[in-house]
């Protein structure tokens, strides 16, 4: 699709990029917000992979976390609430050569954008999809989100939320064409980095739920888990995400073969532990951008073809 440019015509690109090269505006998130850690981890991945900034697109919706593209010196599309995925689908469908990252919040992804979320997974286009889940609406100042824990008081449900939370991991694992489903947390930066890195290398739609602290509106939701690593269980496997160098803090290691969908679904069910790691991976599903790949033609070729087509309508 891309036409020839200096960078795609065999001329060696000798540029190297450091983390700072990917940074743009100073983030305006609150001090202590988990989004900072995600941004840093993403910049580390960009640096490690030496992604060309002009070949990389970050697409987001609306919410605190959706400011993400503004803080990166790549191409970006800060879209509509809930609608990051259709935009990203359009970008990838017409330009499979671009590296596409999507950043959404929990309200963005699992509430107003829930329909797109399910279908984007079915399309299985190669992109890294980060759902930054602070389990509350932040930008609009503390309303209940689908992932808000039962009974958690907010400004719209001051006597506590009425419904048990939606479980994003089990929703994703229930969908046709699930191909990479992982969970990580902003307060375990090494795991966060490795997860995004693994997602980037995944050949398909890589969905990551990042448990993310909001120091202003939902600080207490993750407080215990942050303070007591014993409450966390790391899913490890040679085929999964292996983060061994966590300073010995995280001792609960659970072997899980990420090709085992049934066990992944069982592990995603609520338990007394927060499970971080790769729940499921399957690179066998066709990618929509490949399935829909078409041969391109010059305008002159198209005119010849269209003239043949018009013959069918000729009087």
């Amino acid at each position: 699709m891309t036409d020839c440019s200096l960078l795609t015509c065999g001329v060696e690109d000798e540029r190297t990029f450091e983390m700072d090269d990917y940074a743009d505006a100073m983030p305006r998130w609150c001090p202590g917000c988990g989004d900072h850690a995600v941004l840093t981890a993403v910049e580390r991945v960009l640096e490690k992979e030496q992604l060309r900034p002009e070949q990389t697109v970050f697409v987001s919706g609306i919410g605190c976390s959706s400011r993400f593209p503004h803080y990166l010196d790549t191409y970006g599309f800060h879209g509509l609430h809930g609608r990051a995925l259709p935009l990203a689908t359009g970008v990838k469908l017409s330009r499979p050569d671009l590296n596409v990252f999507v950043v959404m919040g929990d309200g963005d992804c699992t509430s107003i954008g829930a329909g797109h979320w399910l279908h984007a997974l079915r399309y299985n286009m190669r992109m890294v999809v980060l759902m930054l889940d602070n389990e509350v609406y932040g930008l609009t100042k503390k309303q209940t989100s689908p992932t808000t824990p039962l009974g958690f008081p907010t400004n719209t449900q001051p006597r506590g939320s009425y419904l048990p939370p939606l479980n994003p991991i089990s929703v994703m694992l229930g969908m046709t064409n699930a191909s990479f489903i992982a969970q990580t947390a902003d307060w375990v930066p090494a795991h966060l980095f490795e997860t995004i890195e693994a997602a980037f290398h995944h050949d398909g739609f890589a969905f990551i739920r990042v448990l993310q602290r909001c120091p202003v509106f939902s600080a207490n939701i993750f407080e215990r888990a942050v303070k007591s690593p014993d409450l966390t269980e790391l899913l490890v496997d040679d085929q999964g995400i292996n983060v061994t160098n966590l300073g010995g803090l995280y001792k609960n290691l659970l072997r899980h073969d990420p090709s085992d969908l049934d066990r992944a679904r069982w592990l995603a069910e609520p338990s007394d532990k927060i499970r971080l790691g790769l729940f499921y991976q399957n690179q066998a599903h066709p990618k929509y951008e490949e399935t829909r790949k078409v041969k391109h033609h010059t305008p002159a070729e198209k005119i010849a073809l269209l003239n043949t087509e018009l013959d069918r309508y000729a009087v």
Binding site: G79, R83, L85, P86, G90, K92, R95, L98
Partner: peptide, 17 residues
């Protein structure tokens, strides 16, 4: 697309690209 909203969203994404 999965709905009318996604249909235009995909078109805008493609056009942006």
């Amino acid at each position: 697309a999965e709905d009318e909203i996604a249909a235009i969203g995909v078109a805008i994404g493609a056009s942006f690209a």
